[in-house]
Design a protein around this nucleic acid. Sequence first.
DNA 1: TTAACTTCCGGTAACGTTCCCAATAGATGC
DNA 2: GCATCTATTGGGAACGTTACCGGAAGTTAA
Lengths: 347, 347
Amino acid sequence: MGRRPTIIDVARLAGVSKSTAARALSDSPDVNDATREKVRKAAIASGYERNHLAVGMRSGRSGLFGLVIPDITNPFWAEVARGAQDIVGENGASLLVFSSDWDHDREASHLRALRQARVEGAIVNPVSDNAEDFGRFGVPFSLIGSSAERFPDTPSIGSDIRQAVRLGLDHLVARGHAAPALILGPKSRLARARFLRSVHEHCLERDIDPAVLLVEDGDYTFEGGHAAMQRLMARQRNGHLTVFCANDLMALGAMLAVREAGRECPRDVSILGFDGVPAGAFSWPGLTTIEKPARELGRRAAQALFDEIAGRPQDGRTYLPCRLIERGSLADLTVHTPLRVAGAGRS
Amino acid sequence: MGRRPTIIDVARLAGVSKSTAARALSDSPDVNDATREKVRKAAIASGYERNHLAVGMRSGRSGLFGLVIPDITNPFWAEVARGAQDIVGENGASLLVFSSDWDHDREASHLRALRQARVEGAIVNPVSDNAEDFGRFGVPFSLIGSSAERFPDTPSIGSDIRQAVRLGLDHLVARGHAAPALILGPKSRLARARFLRSVHEHCLERDIDPAVLLVEDGDYTFEGGHAAMQRLMARQRNGHLTVFCANDLMALGAMLAVREAGRECPRDVSILGFDGVPAGAFSWPGLTTIEKPARELGRRAAQALFDEIAGRPQDGRTYLPCRLIERGSLADLTVHTPLRVAGAGRS
DNA sequence: TTAACTTCCGGTAACGTTCCCAATAGATGC
DNA sequence: GCATCTATTGGGAACGTTACCGGAAGTTAA
C-alpha cells in the first residue's frame, strides 16, 4: 500500500491550492462554502488524515502530553492515569504514559523522552525532591502526589493528608482505640514524612505523646506490610493491636500476617488502611480505609496543566479531601474493652 | 525562557555546519573524532535535545506506539500495559495509552488519534469483531486478547483459553467436583463464546453433558458476579455448589454473595476464578484461580509488533499458557464427600 | 607530478503543515 | 469610469531534521 495522502493530494483532488485546502479543513472563515465542501469531499475520498507530526512541527503544539507515575500496575496510579487520560482526551490530545518504578534514572530518562517528543505538558509524580531536574525540565508540568512544596510556582495536586489522617484518627478515637501503631513507607520517600508529621500533629492535639507510637517501616508493598506486621506483633504480644498503615497494600499484607499468626482481625487486631484500592473491598474482613480521590486527582492535575498552559489563573497547590470507607477491619472497642489495652484513649 | 535550541544552534556553537552537527550526533562514521567531540560538547552546553517531531517528519518514524485497551484501571489490562510499555521503552520509543471502555465509538476515535499521531504501530484489544475498522487501519498492529481469528495475517497474542479451561476442570475433577456452574461474561463479548466452547469441549471429553451445567451471565464486574451468584444460589439450594467464573472480579463478587447468604467458601461453595488479579490473593479465602500471563501478554504483543515492522518472520497467532494458582477457595471433596452433591464427577 | 582515492565537511532539498503576503476578481463608492 | 474595498485564492517560506550530492583537502600509487 502506498504512502498516506497529504493535504497536497487533497488539494489536487479538489482542484485547489494546498493553502485553500488547509484553510478549508481548519474551518477558516476565509474560504468559500462551496470550495470548503469540495475540499471536505476530497479529503474523505482520499482518506486524508492530518499529520500531527507536521502540525506540531509547524505550530509548536504536538498534541501530546506526558504522564510519569511510579507504576501503572498500582491500582491507585492506574486510577490517576485514567483521570488524566480522560481530561487529555477531552481536549483532543493524547497521553504518553511512563512508569518510573521509583527509580531516579528511569524517571530522568522518561522526562528526557517527553522533552524529545515535544509534549506540550506533563503530569509527574516525582520520585523524590530532586528539584534541579524539574527546574530545568523545560516543559510546563503539574505535580501530583507529594513533594509539591518545592515548586511554589507550579500547580500541584495531592490528597489532603492532614485531613485524611485526622479523619482516620478521629475514627479510631471514636471506636475507642488508643494511639495506633504505624506501618509507614520507606524513609527515602517524601510521603512518609508528611504522613508521619500529620499523625504527630494530631496526636499532640489529642494529648497523645507521639513517642509512644510503635512504628515499622514497609515499602508500600503487600510483602512489606506483611513483614512489618510480623515485626509489630513480635513487639506487642498482648492486648488489642491497632495499626494504621500508610497504604492499603501494606494493610492487606498486614491482614494476611495477622491470619497467619493465628490472630483474628478485627477481634485481636484492628487495621486501618490508606488509599482506597478496590482490593480492599474484596478482602475478608473488608478493609476500613481512607480513600484518596485517585481519579479526580488525575483529572485535576491534567486540568491544572491545561489552565497553566492557557495562562489561566492557577490555584497553586490544591489538596483534595479524602473519604473514610468503613468496612470491617476495625474493632469497636467502646463496647467491651479488653483488659490489657496498651495505653488508653483519652477524651 | 527562550525557544529550545536546535541543531543549528549546536552547529553554530561548535563552528560547523548543521549537516556535520547532525552527523556527529547520530554517530555517523563520516565525521572526524575531534569534530564529533566538539559537537557533543556544544550540544550539552546548549542543552540541545533532538526534536522527535522533526525526526519523525523527516524519517517517517515517529518513535510513537499506541495501546488501546478496554480500561487501564482494570488490573489485568494495567499489567498488559506495563508489559507493552517496557518493551516499547527498551526500543527507545514511547507509548500512547488509551482506554476504550468497550465502546465502539471511543475505540474508533482512539484509532484515529493514533493514526494522526503517526504511530509506528499499535497494540489493540478490539472491542469486538468489526473487521472493517482494522482492515482500513493503515498502521501495523498486533492484537491482544480475543478476537484474533478474524485477522489471520496480523500477529496476535492471547491466553490459551482451552489449556486454561482444561487446567481448571482437571483441577476440579481431581478435587472431586462435579460439573461446575458457570458465571460468564455478557453475550456480546467474544471471550464469552470462546470460554464456553472450551468448557463444552472438555466436558464432552469427560463424558459430562454440557447441558447439565448451570449458567449465569455476568458482565465481568464485581457487582455482576455478585448478582449472578445470588441467582445461582437461588437455583441450587442444596449440596456443595461449585462455580467456575470467567474472570476474577466476578469470582470475588460471587464470594461476597456467598458470605452475605450465610454460606461459607469453600465449605459450602467452591469458587474458581480466571485472570489472576492481585486482589485474589487478598480475599478471604484466597481465590483459587487460573492466571493469565498478563504482563507477558503485553510484552509479546509489543515484541510481535516490532518483529512485524522489522519484517522479521511472524508466528501469527500465539497463545500463552496459563497457570493455576491454588489458594483457598476450592473445597477438597475427595476427603469426605457430602451426601447431596449435584451430579457426580467421573474420570 | 598527476591521477585516483579517502576523509571529512557544507549546501540543499525534502518530509507535511500553516501562516503571511500578494494577487485576482467582483462589488461598491464617488 | 476610476479608485477602493471585500471575498477568496495561490505562492512561498518556515518549523527541525536527515539524506544525498558535490567539493576540498590530504594520501597513496603510478
